[in-house]
Design a protein around this nucleic acid. Structure first.
Lengths: 110, 110
DNA sequence: ATTTAATATCGCAATATTACGATAAAAGAT
DNA sequence: ATCTTTTATCGTAATATTGCGATATTAAAT
């Protein structure tokens, strides 16, 4: 085993899980937060900012990109990464649905 | 390797990552959603609801519990699981901070 | 053309996750 | 006391993730 049984869950559940999973690592959260502090989307000085080796950062960037959370555009020599607000909006919507139904729930718990 | 280098990131980043990670699996999202549909917090019929074996569910419940997202109270024979709104509120707050700074950002991207 | 700089990819080791059968533990039912 | 039900834990196999050194790739700089 080791592989998630995605086929048994709804598309929505899988979609949310994929987006969330991409954010489920402190380095990737740090990358996203860093991209938010630099208004112009600076590229690979993320490597200088974070305490991880260049290949590791590159891998995390790839995962964020695969989930659609960031974009990478080639600019000559370097690559310019930036937030993709679209997917974050989708995430916000999905999470809001969750948060709303939690607030609706009568807390008659155990 | 294989172990996350948590010590290099901020407490906030690690905390958010832990909560998010607990939700980063369709089965665990499904469990949370199921707990929200049954107002009275029913216990182990989660096993009947989801297409996974009982030990697998038990393991997922443990992870949700470890992250504080759900609670489990023993009721005689059975165990009664339910949402813990506290941690969801914390999650909502942390995510809201993220979403807000995304909206603030001028989208002068690449 | 060669060198330099910035990223990506490969390959690997260490560890974590996912899933489940078998079994244990605890409480209720007979 | 024994059986049944419910849940947790153990052990294990399959796979995924994390991290990084070494190397490839690409484009700019000399």
């Amino acid at each position: 085993m080791g592989a998630t049984k995605t086929d048994h869950f709804t598309d929505k559940q899988n979609e949310l899980a994929i987006i969330i999973k991409a954010l489920a690592h402190p380095a990737r959260i740090a990358i996203v937060e860093y991209l938010l502090t630099v208004n112009t989307c600076i590229c690979g000085d993320i490597v200088n900012e974070l305490p991880l080796a260049q290949p590791t950062i590159s891998q995390h960037l790839k995962e964020l990109k695969n989930a659609g959370l960031i974009q990478g555009n080639i600019e000559g020599n370097a690559v310019c990464y930036c937030i993709n607000p679209k997917i974050f909006k989708k995430l916000e919507k999905l999470m809001d649905e969750l948060f709303k139904s939690i607030k609706k729930q009568k807390n008659t718990c155990c």
